[in-house]
Computed example of a mutant assay.
Amino acid sequence: MTWVRERVELLLFVVSTGLLLVGGVFWLVGPGEWGEALWVAGTVLGLVFSVAWTAIAIRGGRLSVDVIALLALAGALWVGEPFAGAVITVMLATGQLLEDRAAVRARRELSLLLERAPRTARRLVDGGVVEISVDEVAVADRVLVCRCRGEN
């Protein structure tokens, strides 16, 4: 179950794209009703996820574009445009997948940046230079800044 939770955006993308494509095949070569039924299924799938993501966003005190997706999906079902709804679901899934990937990459890059952050500073005092922890640097301190190769 943890595997599914970690990959929910990817699974939504794969399933919604599959429903859209297989629905298109049925719509083109027959029976068209099956194609429309698959598109409705894709739209409902997107609607379920959109409602969940919107509820989470509202609980967090922020609104996001998920509200627009929610309205678009409900509207597609309301006016009988299952193909449009299925396309919106794929777009929603793609956006969520890209957002998740960007967040993972940002966390990784920030972690790497923090690993390279200096741990010590060189404070200028009357008698010369004293090496201290960066936590000990105060506002009025004079510090020596140099670009030293191989050192923090």
Results as ranks from 00 to 15, higher is better:
residue 40 V to M: 11
residue 145 V to N: 08
residue 83 F to W: 12
residue 6 E to Q: 02
residue 100 D to P: 02
residue 40 V to P: 09
residue 135 D to V: 05
residue 107 R to N: 07
residue 13 F to N: 00
residue 81 E to A: 15
residue 93 A to H: 11
residue 56 I to V: 14
residue 98 L to P: 08
residue 152 N to P: 03
residue 119 R to L: 14
residue 51 V to R: 00
residue 38 L to R: 08
residue 29 V to L: 15
residue 18 G to S: 10
residue 112 L to V: 09
residue 96 Q to D: 15
residue 71 L to A: 14
residue 63 L to I: 12
residue 105 R to Y: 12
residue 146 C to E: 15
residue 80 G to A: 08
residue 112 L to R: 09
residue 99 E to A: 14
residue 56 I to F: 13
residue 99 E to S: 14
residue 33 E to Y: 14
residue 69 A to V: 12
residue 146 C to D: 14
residue 131 E to A: 08
residue 102 A to D: 07
residue 142 R to I: 11
residue 129 V to F: 13
residue 132 I to D: 06
residue 148 C to I: 11
residue 39 W to S: 00
residue 51 V to D: 04
residue 59 R to V: 05
residue 75 G to F: 01
residue 149 R to L: 10
residue 127 G to K: 11
residue 2 T to I: 03
residue 124 L to S: 10
residue 45 L to N: 08
residue 11 L to Y: 05
residue 10 L to I: 07
residue 83 F to Q: 04
residue 143 V to Y: 11
residue 43 T to G: 00
residue 120 T to Y: 10
residue 62 R to M: 09
residue 11 L to N: 01
residue 12 L to V: 08
residue 50 S to P: 03
residue 2 T to V: 04
residue 30 G to R: 09
residue 152 N to H: 11
residue 121 A to N: 12
residue 28 L to N: 11
residue 106 A to F: 03
residue 114 L to P: 01
residue 18 G to M: 01
residue 113 L to D: 05
residue 143 V to I: 13
residue 131 E to F: 05
residue 3 W to D: 06
residue 14 V to T: 02
residue 107 R to V: 12
residue 128 G to N: 14
residue 124 L to P: 03
residue 138 A to N: 14
residue 67 V to S: 02
residue 89 T to H: 05
residue 141 D to W: 05
residue 138 A to K: 15
residue 44 V to Y: 03
residue 84 A to I: 15
residue 120 T to F: 12
residue 30 G to F: 11
residue 69 A to P: 11
residue 140 A to P: 00
residue 2 T to H: 05
residue 108 R to P: 00
residue 78 W to I: 00
residue 12 L to H: 06
residue 104 V to P: 00
residue 88 I to G: 01
residue 46 G to H: 08
